[in-house]
Simulated scan of single mutants.
Amino acid sequence: MKNYFILILLLAAFQNVQSQKTDKKQLIKELANDACSCIDSIPTYNRIKDSITANIHSCIDYRVVAYQITDQLSNIDLSDNSQEKKEIKVPINTDKNPKEYQDIYYDLERYLMENCEAIKSKVASTDKENKNSVSNNKEAMKYYELGIEESKKNNFKEAIENYKKAVKIDPNFAFAYDNMGICYRKLEQYDEAIDAYEKSLKIDPQGLLPLQNIAVAYSYKKEYKKAIKTYEKLALIEPNNPEVFYGIGQMYSMYIKDYEKGLDNMCKAYSLYVAQKSPYRTDAEKIIQMLYDQMKKDGNEKKFNEILEANNISQN
């Protein structure tokens, strides 16, 4: 199936290079837009995050191969008719470790993170059901679905009213409280958002979405130490969740101004994102670059390098 898909991309690439030499930035844009459509079609409901991330990786991976093929074809002079027969060979290295593959992959990934809304929504999806995530009550589900429709239209007040009706019918409807909290956060009513998330946690103490969002709400309230404590609670449930280290690193780096702690946590987040093939690697990368600039300005470049080395990350 993969080879068939790459063949389609190859034919499109061949037609492209016949008409004009391929511009790298334009090709990255075209392939990334195609990858965005692929990512947008990925189902997320009741799926674990690793599975969703693997699908996103596949969407990008196919386009890396298409880029390599197009780049090879663009160097072939099709106007040269000096030979009666011409053999066109396009050697493509399918090993995923070489720097060439990684550079193209990261270029596509960076473009997607800046221009494709679908990639962030899919990675951030928390539709995995637990025992009390959804309701078995049809009336409660009706109001929940109405709330989702209003949320999509940014009618957050109307959405909240529907979610309230849902939890009145079924007080153990965790997803309704989660979505209610998101709407309150969108309305900048952070105390109400935290209250909704905490009600969700009482129903499902293992809920990842409410814990992550409580931390975000505390950061908006500028209560950064409370945000860190909430991320630490999340770590007790998922110790290898990169969002824990990214969140803590962000609090220390951007707000508390403890750059060493910020860098150490951000490096841990970066390594986990890379291992999980998560596109959020690019966000961690940007903050690490910002920390480098700041620590170099403060005369702490040596400490920056020591922290990177301790986390087995090359400065390159």
Rank of each mutant, 00 (worst) to 15 (best):
E309L: 07
K128R: 12
E84N: 09
E87K: 14
Q289L: 06
Y197Q: 01
D127F: 11
N179K: 06
F156D: 11
G247N: 03
S314K: 13
D50T: 04
L31C: 06
N300S: 11
V274G: 03
K25R: 08
Y197G: 02
A310T: 05
K286E: 11
D77I: 04
S219F: 01
N3K: 12
N75R: 12
S19F: 15
T70S: 15
P98N: 15
L146I: 02
Y255D: 01
R281Y: 07
E84S: 06
F175Y: 09
Q18I: 14
E100I: 04
I119V: 14
D95G: 09
K86V: 13
E223N: 05
P205V: 00
F304E: 02
E188G: 08
Y106Q: 14
Y177T: 02
T126V: 05
I287D: 01
L201C: 07
Y270C: 00
N93V: 13
D95F: 12
K302N: 09
V274L: 11
I39Y: 09
Y163C: 11
E306D: 15
L27Y: 14
N46Y: 09
G262L: 03
N130E: 15
K165W: 07
Y163D: 12
C38P: 03
K297D: 10
F156S: 06
M290W: 05
K226N: 10
N81V: 03
I228Q: 00
M266T: 10
E129G: 05
A215C: 07
N179V: 00
S133V: 06
Y101H: 14
K257T: 07
V134T: 10
N155D: 02
Q102E: 13
L112T: 06
E223C: 02
F14M: 12
I69G: 03
P91A: 11
L10K: 14
I39T: 04
D258F: 07
G147S: 10
I92P: 08
A35H: 07
D40T: 04
N93F: 12
S151A: 08
D178W: 09
K142I: 02
N55W: 11
K202P: 05
D40N: 15
K226V: 01
A35K: 06
K257G: 04
K21E: 15
E87C: 04
K286W: 00
L10A: 15
I69N: 13
V17P: 11
M295T: 06
E232P: 03
A13M: 13
S219L: 08
P239M: 11
T230S: 04
K86G: 01
E309V: 00
M1P: 12
E223I: 01
F173R: 03
I194S: 06
V64S: 11
A235Y: 09
S278R: 01
N132V: 03
E192Y: 13
Q18Y: 13
L112Q: 10
A118W: 05
N97E: 14
F14K: 11
F175A: 12
L201K: 08
Q26K: 13
